[in-house]
Design a protein around this nucleic acid. Sequence first.
DNA 1: TGCAACCAGTTGCATATTGAAACCATGATA
DNA 2: TATCATGGTTTCAATATGCAACTGGTTGCA
Lengths: 177, 177
Amino acid sequence: MAADTENSAHRSGCPINLTLEVLGDKWSLIVVRDMMFGNRRHFRELLSNSEEGIASNILADRLRRLVAEEVISRRDDPSHKQKAIYSLTEKGIALLPVFAMIGAWGRKWLPVTEELSIRAALLEEGGPELWREFMDELRAEHLGTPPAHPQNGTGVRERLQSAYEQVVARREKTAHS
Amino acid sequence: MAADTENSAHRSGCPINLTLEVLGDKWSLIVVRDMMFGNRRHFRELLSNSEEGIASNILADRLRRLVAEEVISRRDDPSHKQKAIYSLTEKGIALLPVFAMIGAWGRKWLPVTEELSIRAALLEEGGPELWREFMDELRAEHLGTPPAHPQNGTGVRERLQSAYEQVVARREKTAHS
DNA sequence: TGCAACCAGTTGCATATTGAAACCATGATA
DNA sequence: TATCATGGTTTCAATATGCAACTGGTTGCA
């Protein structure tokens, strides 16, 4: 019989299935999303600033699993003895196109709010070129890799963020109760 | 306060989050995958021919949910009184690029088997053009839409399937215990 | 007509996961 | 010295999953 090259038992060797075994739950991708697009790197940031309100035990569990799967990594913050810094690995950064596609699908087919889907819209519009730029930026931030293609103006995340803030500002302005 | 335009309570209006609320579990995408790439249209086909071995109660629950979310639809088989036919909706067919990206990620970063990842490889190689062709084919099969761009030779699924079978055949041939 | 196989699920039950809230030990800060 | 921020853990009820047996019916065939 052909022995699995991995130690653990998988349901099948299908890439879709294996991805679901790693990320197929309601929270794992939320955590990665917040690290990637919200630049949350500490436990408390991920816990408190989350739109969806993850519970601390679930967050701790997901961080542990994602570290075990090497989608993210954990290291101590040298400036603060019990502060931990979570970073995306290359494997985690490689999820960006997946987020772009999921975001595009959700934006088209589900009842999204405008302010929370503007990032997905820009990411879809920008296409693979923008994704590469953002991934490069993420490598610099999370892996300490010097950017391969030097960035000209502001970073991608910053642009996404300010687009979000513009929508919020416009919405607040036109909202008269 | 701004009232949600939808009836149910969502964790947030973020497209990533909403997609996870619909598809964020270990089985939903497996079911859609088997309908899309394996052309399984009946309960028993999905139950028995699955690589991963889904349980019948879980399958029934997921089919119910996916129908409720309008990712798939259900109708009676006119040729057989208690046979049900499940079809992808346009919303379901629109998941193809998501599968392509997830498949590409899984293939690159997880311990996939060659025969079960050949489809993902071809789908990645073919790019958006091939995806469109396949989606067109799926529309014809699942929605009864006449193909917008007439297909020349064999269908995409058929090509993916025969590539899979070639890998299996080669593997069996070279396998001497 | 009768019978076996097929069909889409349901039911019951043990176990695993989730979610909410309180709690904790340590280290930094005033 | 007191207070607060830190990354979590603990507890317990509610929910979801997984497994196997079962149901009520239909169909094809002898």
